[in-house]
């Protein structure tokens, strides 16, 4: 209950941030751009079902996959370290809240903030789809939004977890930047290098199972899998791309939810553990 009170307060505070407003506008521009791109591409393809999937992916998933982690980390990294730096944490914890209520409340509150940003960005993207393409499945849209908010939660958890582990916002920001670089750049490169080192080649017709697992366990890949699972589509999945019938469990679309849950739980757990015994 206490965590909810903290979350509500935190939401009210963080939603008024100018940085967030700027990021949301940027996100909306991306989704509209995606819708425009989708309308242009739909002229090139005849397959209606693949087309609607591509529209959604271009309009919603691509901008969200790129920007939601950045928005969520920016919203999250200062959550606790910032209050520690300014001293307002002493006001917050002078009230009867447990430290874990503060961490959980921050995760919830800031996820709410990111959810609003996602909702605004997606709604504008949806309007773009109606304008440029003419039709879109509302069920798919809602499923997309829900999974994306979950994706946002994961990165908020990483940001808040980092924030709970350090007393300096600078360090938390550096940590957040490293997280972005890790998942956007390093993860893929390391995978390719591993593939070369272990298998002796970059290009394989049917890559080994471990490579699928490796490529499925990053939060960004898990987001893609989870979306595949809720859309229940026969679109460009890993299995169809490589034409193999049996995927490792970890690379199954529904397992994306499990992976997302782990990515959310681990940083929260580390943050709780560290923040609970540290001197403020």
């Amino acid at each position: 209950m206490s965590a909810i009170i903290v979350a509500k307060k935190d939401f009210r505070d963080a939603i008024r941030s100018r940085v967030l407003i700027g990021l949301t506008v940027l996100f909306a521009l991306f989704t509209v751009g995606g819708a425009a791109l989708a309308s242009w591409l739909s002229g090139l393809s005849d397959d209606a079902s693949a087309q609607s999937t591509i529209e959604l992916v271009l309009t919603l998933q691509a901008p969200a996959g790129f920007l939601v982690p950045i928005i969520a980390l920016i919203v999250g990294y200062g959550a606790i370290a910032g209050e520690r730096e300014s001293g307002s944490l002493k006001f917050l914890l002078g009230l009867p809240h447990r430290r874990r209520d503060v961490v959980l409340g921050k995760v919830l509150g800031r996820t709410g903030v990111v959810a609003v940003s996602i909702f605004v960005g997606f709604t504008i993207g949806l309007l773009g789809l109606f304008a440029f393409v003419g039709s879109v499945s509302l069920t798919d849209y809602v499923a997309f939004t829900a999974v994306t908010i979950l994706f946002g939660l994961v990165y908020v958890a990483i940001g808040v977890g980092l924030s709970a582990m350090t007393r300096s916002t600078t360090r938390a920001a550096v940590g957040a930047l490293c997280v972005v670089i890790l998942f956007k750049v390093i993860w893929g490169i390391v995978g390719t290098i591993l593939l070369y080192v272990i298998e002796g080649t970059f290009l394989m017709e049917s890559p080994p199972g471990w490579y699928f697992v490796y490529n499925a366990v990053s939060p960004d890949a898990a987001y893609g899998s989870a979306i595949g699972a809720v859309l229940n589509q026969s679109g460009p999945t890993v299995a169809s791309a490589y034409d193999i019938s049996t995927l490792p469990l970890v690379a199954e679309p529904w397992f994306g939810f499990v992976i997302l849950a782990v990515w959310a739980a681990v940083p929260i757990g580390l943050g709780l553990w560290r923040f609970d015994y540290v001197d403020l």
Binding site: S88, K90, F91, L95
Partner: peptide, 8 residues
């Protein structure tokens, strides 16, 4: 509690 150097 009124903490030192109140920050809001």
């Amino acid at each position: 509690i009124l903490p030192e150097g109140a920050t809001l």
